[in-house]
Amino acid sequence: MVEEEKERPEEKTGISRRKFTLGVLVASVLGALGSVFTLLKVLSPGKKGGGYVTTIEPGDGLVYAKGSNAGASIQASSMKTGDAVLAYPAGKTSNPANLVQLIRIDEKDFKAPTDIALTDKGFVAYSAICTHLGCTVSWIRNDKALSASYTECFCHNSIFDPARGAKVMGGPAPIPLAQIGVKVKSNGTLVFTSGFKGPVGPQV
């Protein structure tokens, strides 16, 4: 025989105690999850304050980036054909995105897609940040055949040809290093004449 259930107070509202508790629980868990989203958003700041954002402007002088004379103006006469140095724009040396590789190449060796207008007396400059994963590129000088010298990133062995617009000759780099215009001033120092003609830093 089935006993008749006693009338409970919640039946008046149509919601059982269990259902109500469950509802409150689900609502509070959802609310807590919502706040987690906000917290995660706060913990992953946006684009500002980091990354490779160059601040080079035309007219900035080129200075040595490293070595004993770091920060000193680069003299055009100090570089012979086949030489390369790492350079920063004067006064903007704390931003790694501003690092360029200044190379002196025999003017006859320049081939497309190098922008000849951005070179001067064989001086050509490219971003020194590898477009693969952001290491700094190095100059591999070939003393037997200067025109066979090239730029290499030692991290994953990407190879760029500075005489051909820093075209990728090997390795995993997806795009060439961005060229930037340079000019020799009358006092023998070098200045930038343009911004980068392409993206700077890793292309991911």
């Binding site: 913990l43 992953s44 700041p45 684009k47 304050g49 980091g50 990354g51 991911v204």
Partner: peptide, 18 residues
Amino acid sequence: VGDWTSRLLFAGEFPSDA
């Protein structure tokens, strides 16, 4: 997800002081 998770893990774009 890479853009967001990398900023979460490295506290924004690298290199940065955070």
